[in-house]
């Protein structure tokens, strides 16, 4: 490939224009931006509006509502004096959505939780794409032994249901942390769920990439470059990679959606984000013990997840149509 001329203003800008005309995608993008922004502003909300520390247990505390002092944990009204229930949605700035079983402000935790959920899912998606691109390109381009080894490795990963795989890895790492030579990853580090989620979805992303590379390898311009004696790393970097990027871009939002769901599932099983930090999954888990008395604690973060995942999927669809990539992964499970 000898294209010294500047690339035509073509495909990317055209795609973006197409996307901009897609109203659903634009709405999804707006929703994502809005949610991300409000999550980023979580500390402001907790400090200036709700005026609570959403990471400190506060079951013995009380708040002022309409000039009355109200206990955060309220004794149940029964002859045996059994049990207490956290305060429900107050409709005030403090404890807008009520308290969880540890007396913490659910609304403030939702925002902080969203930060972690979004951070983990986006980082996991990016990491997964990098790994999958590396694996897919290596397997597809070099073929032979590399392909065989990588494919068998994928087979092994593929042979265990995704969630089971992620759960196994999490259980091993989450209680102990990870020590890899000089690198020590603390047990409550967000890196652990990020890496695990990225890892388990690699086979799903690598497969379509490998397919695309296999097709590209036969393409005339690659053959031409080979005949010209261009080093292989140059072919990979300048010929193969740019042509795979559309696939990667389309996979991005879809993978982020999958990662967000996986993160919430792991956190729901208490092996994702570790307390007292929050994610939408951990809040749903906190709410599980209150589902009969304070269902809002579990419902609100679930709705947030649905909204974000839906927006990501719509955006992914929009990108796919705009970039005209047909075979990008449509699986999720």
């Amino acid at each position: 490939m000898t294209a010294e001329a500047p690339p035509p203003p073509g495909p990317w800008r055209q795609a973006m224009r197409g996307l901009a005309r897609n109203r659903a995608s634009m709405a999804a993008l707006a929703v994502l931006v809005l949610i991300t922004l409000s999550c980023v502003l979580a500390p402001l909300y907790a400090r200036d509006i709700a005026r609570t520390d959403p990471f400190t247990s506060n079951v013995a505390g009380s708040i002022m509502l309409d000039g009355h002092e109200v206990d955060i944990m309220q004794p149940n009204d029964n002859p045996l004096h059994l049990g207490l229930s956290p305060i429900g949605p107050t409709g005030h700035a403090a404890y807008l959505l009520g308290a969880d079983s540890q007396g913490r402000d659910v609304a403030a935790r939702m925002l902080y939780g969203g930060r972690n959920s979004l951070l983990i899912s986006s980082c996991a998606a990016v990491l997964c794409l990098i790994l999958a691109a590396a694996a897919g390109i290596a397997a597809g381009f070099f073929g032979g032994l590399v392909d065989a080894v990588l494919s068998r490795l994928m087979d092994i990963m593929w042979a265990v249901p995704v969630y089971l795989f992620a759960i196994s890895l999490s259980i091993v790492t989450v209680s102990q942390g990870l020590k890899l030579g000089p690198f020590v990853v603390e047990a409550d580090s967000l890196l652990i769920p990020i890496v695990i989620i990225a890892l388990v979805y690699v086979p799903y992303a690598a497969r379509p990439i490998r397919g695309r590379v296999l097709a590209l390898r036969q393409a005339e311009f690659v053959t031409a470059a080979r005949c010209l004696g261009v080093p292989r790393w140059r072919i990979v970097l300048f010929d193969i990679l740019p042509n795979v990027t559309t696939t990667l871009v389309v996979l991005g939002p879809l993978l982020m959606a999958l990662s967000l769901l996986a993160e919430s599932a792991l956190s729901f099983l208490s092996i994702g984000v570790q307390a007292p930090a929050a994610s939408w999954g951990t809040i749903i888990q906190d709410g599980e013990g209150l589902i009969y008395t304070r269902p809002m604690v579990a419902i609100a973060p679930g709705l947030a997840i649905v909204l974000v995942v839906l927006a990501l999927n719509i955006l992914g669809d929009g990108l796919r149509d705009a970039l005209d990539v047909r075979d990008a992964a449509r699986r999720s499970s």
Binding site: A257, L261, S264, A265, F268, G281, I284, G287, E288, I291, Y292, P295, A298, I299, G302, I305, V306, V309, L310, N313, I314, D317, S332
Partner: peptide, 23 residues
Amino acid sequence: GLIGISMPVFWLGQVANLITQSR
């Protein structure tokens, strides 16, 4: 269909339980 894909299954299950078992 897209909404179906976007719901965490454990959450949907919880909501279903809330509705059918309790509320």
